[in-house]
Write a protein that binds this DNA or RNA. Structure first.
Length: 280
DNA sequence: GGAGTTAAGCGTCACTAAAT
DNA sequence: ATTTAGTGACGCTTAACTCC
């Protein structure tokens, strides 16, 4: 709630979102004071010169033994790490952007795919249901470099080399047998299993030997879903903190400007006093 | 009222540092 | 080495605003 501190090491926002911070001297009392926040908490605090009073609630008040009251603005400041992060080497940023420019967003890829009408359009509305569908679709699609092979009924189905151990594709030898209306019956070679596939069959063949995401197990999709959910919440929290940080910086600017103005006025009056005493 | 612009917010991806 | 949390960047949507 209230912190009096002289160094710059404290975290601006603790894990519970309570602002605890310190900035350079905004208020410099040199006697014992009572800090009273708007919530009514009273903490006797000794303030030495150069320290700072920060409150997380607006309209808090400082009360000195002399009885003078001072309404405070909320001032919260993050420690230097944020600024340091933003000052990372230029080539580092360039590198990142380079990578990003060569790695278009998933949505973009989806749009490209959608124009080919291979997949149903994926709506990104953020609902759980949609994100399920989203994750499932992206889980089961092969990489962008995959190509597609159309198979017509009664035609032999050409799969990747059977020597390749491509999970879910080459390990299953299939032949198309007699087509039924609007679909094809597929048989697993050497097994009794068979299933009906309505419409034209499209085989997605992975060309880069990446076997890991050909078919993702259910728990992998679930993991992804959890990761996305967590990241979504993390992003929300991150934005909230950022907003708060910017607000606090703006408040600090206002306070420092006021202080600067007061100091200029004080200097001016002292100069006048000095001049008048000198002329006497 | 429709078109264009802008700012804010969101979800996602990629990356990093810290924790395990 | 792997996992996790935090964050910058990107693309998208939407609301508010301005101009014609």
């Amino acid at each position: 709630m209230v912190e009096e501190n002289g160094n710059h090491d404290s975290d601006p926002l603790d894990s519970k979102g309570i602002s605890v911070t310190c900035v350079q001297s905004v208020i410099q009392p040199n006697q014992q004071s009572v800090i009273q926040s708007a919530t009514g908490n009273i903490q006797p605090t000794v303030l030495t010169k150069g320290n700072v009073i920060l409150v997380s609630k607006p309209n808090s008040v400082i009360q000195t033994p002399q009885g003078s009251l001072q309404t405070l603005q909320v001032v919260v400041e993050a420690h230097g790490s944020d600024d340091e992060d933003s000052l990372s080497p230029q080539n580092n940023i360039k590198k990142r952007r380079d990578i990003l420019s060569h790695s278009p967003s998933r949505r973009k890829i989806e749009n490209n795919l959608n124009t080919g009408e291979i997949f149903p359009k994926i709506e990104s509305s953020g609902s759980d249901c949609d994100s399920n569908l989203d994750s499932e679709l992206s889980s089961h699609s092969i990489s962008v470099s995959s190509h597609y092979q159309s198979v017509l009924p009664n035609e032999p189905l050409h799969l990747p080399s059977q020597n390749e151990d491509v999970q879910g594709l080459s390990t299953i030898t299939m032949t198309t047998t007699g087509s039924t209306t609007g679909g094809t019956i597929l048989h697993y070679a050497g097994q009794d299993g068979q299933f009906f596939v309505p419409g034209e069959i499209v085989v997605m063949q992975n060309t880069n030997n990446d076997t890991t995401n050909t078919v993702l197990p259910e728990d992998q999709a679930k993991k992804r879903e959890i990761r996305l959910l967590k990241n979504r919440e993390a992003a929300r929290e991150c934005r909230r903190k950022k907003k708060e940080y910017i607000k606090c910086l703006e408040n600090r600017v206002a306070v420092l400007e006021n202080q600067n103005k007061a100091l200029i006025d004080e200097l001016k009056s002292l100069k006048e006093l000095y001049c008048s005493q000198k002329t006497e």
